[in-house]
Design a protein around this nucleic acid. Structure first.
Lengths: 221, 221
DNA sequence: GTGCGAGCTATACGTAGGTTTGTGCCGTAG
DNA sequence: CTACGGCACAAACCTACGTATAGCTCGCAC
């Protein structure tokens, strides 16, 4: 298989583990551990270093020492969240305390391991983290196409879409927007075509996935 | 309408804090703390005791010492999960360790506080936990009506519902089920009436909320 | 048996959805 | 100026949706 072919299916496979630890011997040990089970590894020695690297395009996870030179692992976690990078994080700590653990877990860490870390615990945690990331990426991918098509709609088409997806009839949409019914019908057809929806049910699910507010939504009692 | 305004008319009823601790002085202190901010309280001295009580019908949370006579707080957490009771849990511990904390948080605990507990930390945690429970109850309530109406559908109506909600036209549904189109139309009308859906969009959202499998679903690219 | 509800269909009719073709206005990019 | 895209509408036409009325079978409970 050529590199090009590998790249083509990269989004689907070959997960990678990112290690951030200032202790070279720790980096080496973790790298060996992960490689021994066939995982790709990339190691960093500081938070700054990994923030400069581009986020991986494959399912991945971070293994992070809570005590790092400069900023702590928790700071890095917060920075990544702010940068909208949601790679799952596994913390390792030598002298962690409970409040620190709680904070990390509340912020979405998948695990928090204490030194000395047992190999099997680490591998289990990484396995779970990568699986979580894979799911997140799949979900992300499944709506990215929908979102980009939505971007291609004109302002008016979006108005109509919101009302149609909320269950209004064409004539009601027309009244709401001060249009003739025929105009709504035409926009509606354009929306279906542009969004690639083959039925109204499709369109409804797309708008829900996009989180478009419903002007007349319900579902109660 | 903002989320705050919605909140005001959400799940009615006086929230309650359930305390489980074998230390009478701790129970008294916590009870006083919560009552001082106007929260209702019910205290228990063991896991067995609270398992016998009926789960509260109002937004609530558990404040749980991790070390309990008989079973540990983590065991109680697991038992409650098994019994399908999802009241949010706040743990308190005197001598907890990190693995215990991780396990509790992974299992869905909202917080894990160490003694001595600062009053404000406890109140913040309880506030968050009750809010979480209120949201969960609201979500639960909003689909319970839909679910019960779905139970009232006949077998054939459910067949038709699944296909209609997946976006098929009446004639396609008819072909799929070996029926005449007119039959599908009539069932469809009955479904709309029985489910209380005022539009197809409604119906689609209901089926999605119920997790009904789609025979011809998509949403890709 | 009688009644009842589920299941199934038919004819008929009215409404809603959707496309095509064509018209026109407006603003802006070239 | 001209071309283009967004916006808006109309007439004509076809398809899909939905209801009412009516009739049929089957199985089950009384």
């Amino acid at each position: 298989m050529t590199d090009h072919e590998k790249q083509a299916q990269a989004s689907a496979g070959e997960p990678i583990v990112l290690i951030v630890d200032d202790d070279p011997s720790m980096r080496r040990a973790l790298t060996n551990l992960f490689q021994s089970v066939g995982l790709k590894v990339q190691a960093f020695s500081s938070a700054a270093e990994i923030m400069e690297a581009k986020p991986p395009a494959v399912p991945s996870c971070l293994v992070l020492d809570i005590r790092l030179p400069g900023s702590s692992g928790l700071d890095l976690q917060a920075d990544l969240a702010k940068a909208n990078i949601h790679t799952p994080i596994i913390f390792i700590t030598g002298h962690g305390d409970i409040p620190m653990t709680v904070r990390a877990m509340k912020s979405g860490a998948v695990d928090f391991l204490t030194k000395p870390v047992r190999d099997q615990d680490m591998l289990d945690a990484v396995q779970a983290a990568i699986e979580r990331d894979r799911k997140r990426r799949d979900a992300e991918k499944s709506i990215s196409g929908v979102r980009s098509r939505f971007e291609g709609l004109t302002a008016r088409e979006r108005d109509v879409l919101a009302l149609v997806a909320s269950g209004l009839m064409n004539k009601q949409v027309a009244a709401e927007l001060g249009l003739a019914e025929i105009t709504v019908k035409i926009y509606r057809g354009q929306i279906m075509r542009k969004m690639g929806a083959k039925s109204l049910a499709d369109l409804v699910r797309m708008t829900d996935a996009l989180g478009i507010p419903r002007n007349r939504g319900h579902l109660q009692t």
